[in-house]
Amino acid sequence: MNLVVCIKQVPDTETQIKVGADGKSINMDDIKWVMNPYDEFGVEEALRIKADKGGDVIVVGAGPKRVTEALRTALAMGADKAILIEDEGLYGADPIFVGKLLAKAIEPLNPDIVFFGQRAVDDDCGLASSSVAEALGMPQLAVIVKQELDGDTIKVQRPVEGQTNVLSTKLPVCLTAQKGLNEPRYASLPGIMKAKKKPLEVKTLADLGVERDDKIEIAAINPPPERAPGKVIQGETPEELAVNLAKALREEAKVI
């Protein structure tokens, strides 16, 4: 099996995000960069399939040089090989464009399954995977919590509002991982040592014959709307507190 996992490097979820000086990007000082949490599920699932059916796990990341760290983490988890599409200006790019770019690097790998996170926790788009699927002419099964392979047929569970859809298709396919798919392993110390020697290929946009072509433009980034100061509900007893809270929600906020 040729198993490919797309990995985006994102700010650690602990990060307080601040607006940058240009008002159109975020302030990138003091950010700790990590593998997108949803992509960890993709790496884990690919490693499990490899353990079961054999094959290679190749991880692909596009972005500045620092993305190497996220790729090394995946190699330390057990992936076999990494491809970095290096471009210093790529962070914040249109995910549909990023998808086209990733597809160029993935196509020659002749994948059976391409894994993604269901969304990147920075842009919160969940678009890059569809763009790859479209470019490679593959079906996509998105936001899945379980997969089962049977020959060249894959069956997945996709929870949607109030129900779970069980879907099947033939390989090759693009899958996007939702929490619940598995419990990602940590990189072990020997794994980290080994990762240093695993192949990491670096490509540029020019190598892939792609020119930057974003179809969206970020006009501004703003802090969230200010909230009015809150109110502490008063009362002597739990009953009184509950009555006063219900009253506030009913009469003041008018939400119940």
Partner: peptide, 9 residues
């Protein structure tokens, strides 16, 4: 954590 204004070209 922040909000973006997006234009579609």
């Amino acid at each position: 954590k922040v909000y973006a204004d997006v234009l579609l070209k």
